[in-house]
Computed example of a mutant assay.
Amino acid sequence: MTNERRVLVHPDKSALAGSVAARFITKVLDLLDVQETVHVVLTGGSMGGAVLEAVRNSPAHTSIDWSRVHFWWGDERWVPDGDAERNDRQSREALLDSLDLPEGHVHPFPASDSGLSLDDAATAYANELARFGMDGLPHPVFDIVFLGVGPDGHIASLFPHRSGIQVVDRPVIAVRQSPKPPPERLSLTRPVINASQRVWLVLAGADKASALGLALAGASRDEVPVAGIKGRRRTVFFVDRDAAAEVPEALIARDY
């Protein structure tokens, strides 16, 4: 088993989304050749949606038996079901609604109008994760975790100088007073993400360059949360040229 961290640079956002989508399709096909199901964690944001749209628009996506794929999310905004700000709605519109997916294979976080409190919603998602626990863990060992990275280096809803990135005793946390609206959210915790086989971080834009550079230079995870993220087998930063501005040349991979 290898554990690698690589930076793959693309000329622009469009090329970035297309490349990640193609790699995703290929990897899911490879995984389904050797295992019964695949568990994927999705992310929100403009690049998260762009990648899923590129998957939908690729003719190759029809070669996947999507009924064997489970979809989860790394975090969610505490807003009503169907709200345009919810990551799950964005993912459904970009890709999931076009696939032949068993309903039980789509695992959205509870919504603010679900009748649950924020804390109870965190517990409910933890219980859903536990239904698919693997390797003695109370959650799946995710095959691919997609993450975006904020200009401040946050991933999921784990923010700098907040306690969320330090939580290790539970798989899901309730987030309050988020520095990024809305103030209330739900998020997977770092141990769940780091237990995954592959973490694919997709980021674009000059405003991400500093966070990426700091993470690769060994910054503290409390200062730059993305610095504390690493998959079991592989961690790949898929970036555009602008986001790579502060990445040392020696860290840029020439191939996957």
Rank of each mutant, 00 (worst) to 15 (best):
A156P: 01
A22F: 00
N87P: 01
V55Y: 07
A84F: 09
A217V: 03
V55D: 09
T37V: 15
S157C: 06
P110T: 04
G153V: 06
H107W: 04
V175C: 08
P138I: 03
E53P: 00
H107F: 03
A195Q: 00
A21S: 05
S157Q: 03
G213Y: 07
A253Y: 02
T235V: 11
P179F: 01
R170G: 07
P59F: 12
A15D: 11
W66C: 06
L201E: 01
A227M: 06
A94E: 13
Y256N: 09
G48Q: 08
A209G: 07
D83E: 07
A209H: 05
A156G: 00
V168Y: 08
S210M: 10
H105V: 08
P11F: 00
L251F: 04
R5S: 13
Y256H: 14
H161W: 08
F142A: 10
G133D: 03
L16E: 01
R5K: 06
M1D: 09
K208N: 10
I165F: 07
L216T: 05
G115D: 09
A227Y: 03
G18K: 14
Q177V: 06
E93R: 10
A243M: 08
H161N: 15
G48Y: 05
A204V: 07
E76W: 03
R5C: 12
H154N: 04
P140A: 07
A121K: 10
P181S: 13
A126Y: 06
S63T: 15
A50G: 11
S67E: 13
M47A: 09
P138K: 02
Y125V: 12
V224H: 01
D135I: 00
E4Q: 11
E36S: 14
T123L: 15
V226T: 09
R77F: 08
G205I: 10
L8F: 04
G228H: 03
S178G: 09
W73T: 04
G133F: 01
P11T: 06
K208C: 09
V149Q: 12
V55M: 12
I144V: 15
Q197R: 14
T26K: 04
L116I: 07
P182N: 11
F142T: 01
F146L: 10
A60W: 15
A206D: 14
D222P: 02
R6P: 07
A15K: 11
G115E: 08
D207L: 09
F71V: 04
V145R: 12
V41W: 09
A174Q: 12
H10K: 02
P171H: 11
W73M: 08
E128N: 09
D30M: 00
E223M: 05
R185Y: 00
G44W: 12
I193V: 13
D33Q: 14
V28F: 01
L99K: 12
W78N: 03
H39E: 14
G150K: 13
M134N: 03
V175A: 05
V202R: 08
R241V: 13
I64Q: 13
G153E: 01
P138F: 02
S14Q: 14
